[in-house]
Design a protein around this nucleic acid. Sequence first.
DNA 1: CAGTGAGCGAGCTTCCGCTTGACTT
Length: 835
Amino acid sequence: MPKNLVIVESPAKAKTIQQYLGDDFMVESSFGHIVDLPKKGMGIEIENKFKPLYEVSADKKEVVKKLKELTKKAETVWLASDEDREGEAISWHLYNVLDLKKKETHRIVFNEITKKAIQKAVENPRSIDENLVDAQQARRVLDRLVGFEVSPILWKKIKPGLSAGRVQSVAVRLIVEREKEIQGFKPVSSFRFTAQFLTKENKGLKAILTKEFSTFEEAKKFIESCTNAEFKVKDLQKKPAKRSASAPFTTSTLQQEASLKLGYPVSRTMRVAQQLYEAGHITYMRTDSVNLSQDAIAAAEKTIQREFGNKYSSPRNYTNKNKSAQEAHEAIRPTNFDVKSAGGDDSQHRLYDLIWKRAIASQMANADLERTIIDIENSNNSEIFQSRGEIIIFDGFLKVYQDTITDDDAEDDKAILPDVSKNEKLKADEIFGTEKFTKSPPRYTEASLVKKLEELGIGRPSTYAPTISTIQNREYVIVGSLDGEQRKLQTLKLKKDKITEKVETETFGADKRKLIPTDIGIVVNDFLVDYFKNILDYDFTAKVEESFDAIAEGKEQWTEMIDGFYGKFHKNVETVQETAERATGERELGIDPKSGKPVSARIGRFGPMIQIGNSEDEEKPRFASLLSTQSIHNISLEEALQLFDLPKNLGLYKNETVEINVGRFGPYVKFQEKFISVPKGEDIMEISLERAIELIDEKMKADAPIASYDGLEVTKGKGRFGPFIKWNEMFINVNKKYDFDNLSNKDIEELIQDKLKKESEKVVQNWESEGIRIEKARWGRHNLIQGKLKIELAKEVDVMKMTVDVAKKLIEAKKPAKKAAGSKKPVAKKTTKKK
DNA sequence: CAGTGAGCGAGCTTCCGCTTGACTT
């Protein structure tokens, strides 16, 4: 047993460091935070100077147990969690929970994982920085207070189960306000002209008129004046220019570029990056630093010199513009620059390629360019056509990596221009003018929202992806696409001295995979902005971060800082609780022609809905839910009334009724006690009997057994976790190794036998005659199973010592209780599971 | 698991940050 125990946060990191430190050291991991506030309840003694009631997190009990045993045996413990606020707190919690007080304990830090850096860290141990720990406590307590005092207000005033928080609520606000900007945007049109010239060598030269006209009349006057005009080069300017590479990736820039270049949602980027990290291909993927280690810079230099030659190499380090960065890690880069391609699948390959190129490019020379501007005048008016071009004289870093251009106008500047000389006469082949409308600001994508949050200093690299998921799981926003609308454009063309006017149409407002707020998102946001302005302020995080910094520097007490915030905040919470009206986003749609009663749309306990009549009426009001494609602010009276036609009887198929309706899981067709989901995007009001029968037949075909095994049917399907076959009530995942569309009998046998083997390995106790068994479950727990009944056993239960009588009692105790609960109320929605 | 919506009241939901890995339909 080595004398030294080193504890870091990540197991992959532990593995690497173990190699650098050798046999005298044992390197273990804490898997992040081991201690937190309790999951349920506030967990803060507010009256007692906000004392946090920490406890070891449920999923870290095992880790703590293991670390405790190891610390007992070690002589010296080295706490090597990350060098930032959270990392310092992790060390502090380890110190307390592992009871290291009496042991020799050192705190060490390093922000790059190289042999040199680690040895240096070991030579320069320090003690735990209590001020930094206090800053973390303030951060944690503030977030808990805000989240757990504001969320319940939303449950009461809007809808149960909603949430608010320092980060998520601002993220939603950005999206809602952008959407309002877009909805309120009034496009202004102007007329812009382009001309296609021919040089004396008959080469094409495209140019844009520097002036725009605001009316069609002015535009027309201009093009008329161009008839028979003579054009010539008025001015020709050539200027050298430079372009330099971007810094290597941080979490946020990786998410943006992977979104733009590869089309990955942020969750996918992070999942794939994690895989590359665990395989040892890249450095840590949750970082806000653009820094590269000296070793990495030297290695990149070597690779670049060998691959591209000396003149392409330009070693450098980058500095972070982001004030809130904590820089506990390096930038994201390949661990070995000589490995040009890595990864276990295509997704990983493509992401690795991006990371390799970006990191390599960051160490390459600037590109040298020549920018050319050609001004063209004409004999008939004073307007100037201008042509801009750019040629690359030395490509430098552009050889491997180009930032994605998001501004579509920038394209024109890239053209390579033909040679012309000053005063050269040009022939205007065609002059074309078109009406152009100003564009509203763009909707956020997942990645551009992360970029914005980072700019505002809100959230951390480890939370960007989870935050994006949270606001979607809460159904505040969706990632959606819009078709757009048509509009007319006036155009003018001058060719061969003839002017033609034409009206063209263009599509505008179309959008793909953008963040769009839902009715609930809008109502919740407006409520929060009304009543909790302070917390919803875009600068709130920045302001509290200043206080956290003051605490970290020992200039302020954390409890005093929280006290200063909480007084006002809590009073406001109470006032809002007592005085705020219920927020429903209600909108009157009109009068129901059948009953003469008013029809309105609003948010109800189960989401957006339509109501006909009032609750004071003698007759009870009628209700219907909105479809997921509809929204309160634009549903028409007609569409609203249609919803009351459901459930709709479509007719008969095989002498049985076919019904269409909407349930908890969306629209469905019901036939023979079977529920068949209607594919997304289909308008259920338009579904005919024929279409329903199509869906039924498809479903029957998909559900038809593909084989039988041991006398029982085998069926197949695709679920949340990919393709599976089902046999004997068991779901068996079919991995990529198999051709799912053409499974042979042998494949099926193999899959079932493998599954049976795995299942039997899980069983730790089996009373076959009683039909009761105990199986291993996740997080080191066990399940007691009888038929379809499954009881999760507490972790403390020693399953090997359990008798069949105890098991029976547990089952008896569970059975009636479950039934009663089940009949009273449907089980809470479980579809929004976080992980 | 394929509604519901009043009002009563039980008992539930909820935050942000640090980290994986066994598991689900």
